[in-house]
Simulated assay, not measured.
Amino acid sequence: MEHTSKYITPDIKLSSYEDKLFKSDVIFDHHMLIWFISGETKIIQAEESHHFKTGDIFLIPRNQPATVINFPKDGLPHKTVVMLLSAKTLRNFYADIDITTSITPIPKIRSFNSHPLLESCLTSLIPYFEMQELPENIAALKIKEAISILRAIDPEIDSVLGNFEEPGKVDLTSFMEKNYMFNMTMEKFGYLTGRSITTFKRDFKKSYNTTPQKWLTQRRLELAHYMISEHHKKPTEIIFEVGFENLSHFSFIFKKQFGYAPTELLEDSLKRI
């Protein structure tokens, strides 16, 4: 995979993927403002999916599991400007601002299409990536400008950017049923459910009477079986979305679980159409 990144500061980068596809399961520790220069991205979350393309601008909230699949498009690389809105930066910004909106419990990806104010702000960063050095205060001003624009065009954005609470303890089974398809460490599952890793494993055992890894594999295989059988999806189309990384490994454990290969299931499902 040919991936390059140019940084103005650790919080602002120009990211480029040259290969056919790049996939990752991520949970961002900070909010990410992204502007698409070229390429295409599919972002899959627990309750919704998004497609973004050239010109789109969107905000990915922190602490929300997602599968991100990046594609080049029309012979051009997958290229984006990424601005990290860190907790430190936002705390400083909001230090003297009274937030009157209610806090959003589960913030979702916010799309701004190609809003001219945001596009102008992010486009102005491009020349800086070719400079050897950029005064840090200039980069900080550009981030402050972006936050100010977001507040001007989205009246609900304060409920997301101004929320500095860490994940609290949530219902374990409800969370797992919504997020089992994301490849996260047990520590991250614990953090997002408001538990230490020890408490997470103990509570999981009480709820499911098995280990998290065994349960996750089982649920992902069941989802894959459903998508192939009922929606006639090819294994190559769904392995990333159901939480697997490797097609041969997926095919092996699928056949071990069900007694037939995923390709055989697909052939059978197509006959029923």
Results as ranks from 00 to 15, higher is better:
residue 151 R to C: 09
residue 260 Y to L: 12
residue 171 D to A: 11
residue 91 R to Q: 15
residue 187 E to K: 07
residue 92 N to E: 15
residue 101 T to H: 06
residue 42 K to M: 09
residue 16 S to G: 06
residue 160 V to P: 07
residue 227 M to Q: 06
residue 246 N to W: 03
residue 70 N to E: 11
residue 214 K to T: 10
residue 231 H to A: 04
residue 8 I to L: 11
residue 189 F to T: 02
residue 14 L to A: 04
residue 49 S to G: 09
residue 147 I to M: 06
residue 199 T to D: 08
residue 22 F to L: 07
residue 254 F to G: 06
residue 208 Y to Q: 05
residue 224 A to V: 10
residue 103 I to D: 13
residue 32 M to V: 14
residue 244 F to H: 03
residue 101 T to P: 01
residue 106 I to R: 12
residue 87 A to D: 15
residue 79 K to Y: 04
residue 47 E to S: 10
residue 228 I to M: 01
residue 95 A to I: 08
residue 19 D to T: 10
residue 165 E to C: 06
residue 107 P to H: 06
residue 58 F to L: 05
residue 186 M to K: 13
residue 97 I to S: 03
residue 190 G to C: 08
residue 215 W to C: 08
residue 149 I to F: 02
residue 241 E to G: 09
residue 18 E to I: 10
residue 80 T to G: 02
residue 207 S to C: 15
residue 35 W to C: 13
residue 19 D to F: 09
residue 51 H to T: 13
residue 228 I to F: 02
residue 114 S to M: 04
residue 93 F to Q: 12
residue 175 F to E: 03
residue 230 E to P: 04
residue 266 L to T: 09
residue 21 L to Q: 12
residue 11 D to T: 11
residue 252 F to K: 14
residue 239 I to F: 13
residue 64 Q to A: 11
residue 265 L to Y: 04
residue 194 G to W: 00
residue 70 N to R: 13
residue 9 T to A: 08
residue 163 N to P: 07
residue 1 M to K: 14
residue 73 K to Q: 11
residue 41 T to M: 07
residue 71 F to E: 11
residue 113 N to C: 09
residue 6 K to I: 02
residue 55 G to H: 04
residue 9 T to V: 11
residue 153 I to K: 13
residue 213 Q to M: 14
residue 141 L to H: 15
residue 273 I to Q: 11
residue 108 K to T: 03
residue 204 F to T: 10
residue 204 F to E: 05
residue 55 G to D: 03
residue 129 F to V: 02
residue 181 M to Y: 00
residue 61 P to L: 07
residue 158 D to L: 04
residue 247 L to V: 12
residue 252 F to D: 15
residue 271 K to E: 02
residue 56 D to M: 05
residue 145 E to K: 05
residue 239 I to K: 06
residue 186 M to D: 15
residue 205 K to C: 05
residue 148 S to W: 04
residue 199 T to R: 05
residue 66 A to W: 00
residue 129 F to D: 02
residue 36 F to N: 06
residue 70 N to Q: 13
residue 17 Y to E: 12
residue 202 R to F: 14
residue 110 R to S: 07
residue 196 S to M: 04
residue 270 L to M: 03
